[in-house]
Design a protein around this nucleic acid. Structure first.
Length: 98
DNA sequence: GCCCTGACTTTTT
DNA sequence: GAAAAAGCCAGGG
């Protein structure tokens, strides 16, 4: 994947409002790669400080990284059994902001 | 250029 | 609604 791709992914991720979440697929679309949701995840693996990667989860509302539960709860997001409660309400689509 | 892998998604049971 | 399978594309060996 190109560095540009990562950069864009991180930019979008940083735009996610506090207390909200989004999905890999949504970000993938936002950066212009609708079917590269996986690579969004890979880009997250090398995300720098200041990027709220914990707000990026799968489209089902389940946490890819259980560890993020703490941070999410800290932002006011309710986690239940490794899944985001009220996911539909908390879901933030990057495309709406572009 | 083939094969495996991946913080995924969608469809089908 | 949860679990399994198929689909998707780019990178690395």
């Amino acid at each position: 994947m190109d560095e540009i791709f990562k950069q864009q992914v991180w930019e979008i991720t940083k735009l996610v409002p506090k207390g909200r979440v989004t999905s890999y697929g949504a970000i993938a679309k936002a950066v212009g790669y609708p079917n590269h949701s996986r690579h969004v995840g890979k880009a997250m693996g090398g995300c720098p400080e200041g990027v709220p990667a914990h707000r990026v989860i799968s489209s089902s509302g389940s946490l890819s990284v259980p560890e993020f539960q703490i941070k999410l709860e800290n932002e006011g997001i309710i986690i239940e059994n490794f899944k985001v409660k009220n996911f539909k309400k908390l879901f933030w689509d990057p495309l709406l902001e572009l």
